[in-house]
């Protein structure tokens, strides 16, 4: 089974020309820790995450594209919120053994996708269980496997810190990255056109 296919393309509701493109491995993502978020001291726990993981709709922010103002207005919604971050590649490296029909498959555990729905900021992304987690498992075994994955997921995140201790990018930096993203889409489009033209010409 192909895993995390949605990671390969942008899922921005206004299309590929908007937002910042697919989430890259070297990026960091940010998880907002609210007052009612479960935690173990200064770290996340298995219980910190919600059932949104099942639908790959657990909201995270893309650190490189998230200004403090946008975080406070569109994510924290004015409440005092702490944050924790994780390297995307560390999350994508998480693996799980899926036992089904006497066979064991080692599969990707968690996907991180560039999912921006109406109302979300452009730096919004989501994470959730890989499509490979589930098929062929009983409800009890699925619940236990998901619990183990959440243990691993919690371990990929850094210490929880107050949001004002985070080094937020400036607005002009975001603008430059936005321009770079547009240029990247344009470059890819031109590359594909050239390839197509070359193939036709030959």
């Amino acid at each position: 089974m192909t895993e995390c296919v949605d990671e390969q393309r942008t899922r921005h509701h206004r299309g590929q020309w908007c937002g910042f493109g697919p989430v890259r491995d070297r990026e960091y993502i940010l998880y907002a820790v609210f007052d009612d978020t479960e935690r173990n001291g200064a770290f996340l726990t298995q219980k910190s995450f919600t059932t949104n993981l099942i639908q790959t709709s657990e909201s995270v922010g893309r650190v490189a594209y998230l200004t403090r103002r946008i975080f406070e207005t569109s994510i924290a919604n004015g409440s005092s919120t702490e944050i924790t971050t994780a390297l995307v590649s560390a999350i994508r490296d998480l693996r799980a053994d899926v036992r089904a029909n006497a066979a064991i498959k080692n599969v990707r555990a968690v996907c991180v996708i560039d999912q921006v729905d109406p109302g979300d900021c452009d730096a919004h992304a989501t994470m959730g269980y890989s499509e490979a987690i589930g098929p062929g498992l009983s409800q009890a075994n699925l619940g236990k496997l998901r619990a183990r994955i959440r243990l691993d997921l919690a371990n990929t995140f850094s210490e929880i810190i107050p949001s004002d201790r985070h080094l937020w990018p400036r607005g002009w930096q975001i603008l430059m990255k936005r321009a770079a993203s547009v240029a990247r889409v344009a470059f890819n489009l031109i590359s594909r056109l050239l390839c197509s033209y070359t193939a036709t010409w030959r």
Binding site: L94, D97, A140, L145, N155
Partner: peptide, 17 residues
């Protein structure tokens, strides 16, 4: 049943149980 999961360097709970 109880599911035992182990974490150690280079191995995750979800692939080590």
């Amino acid at each position: 049943m109880v599911s035992l999961a182990f974490r150690q360097p280079g191995k995750f709970y979800a692939e080590n149980g």
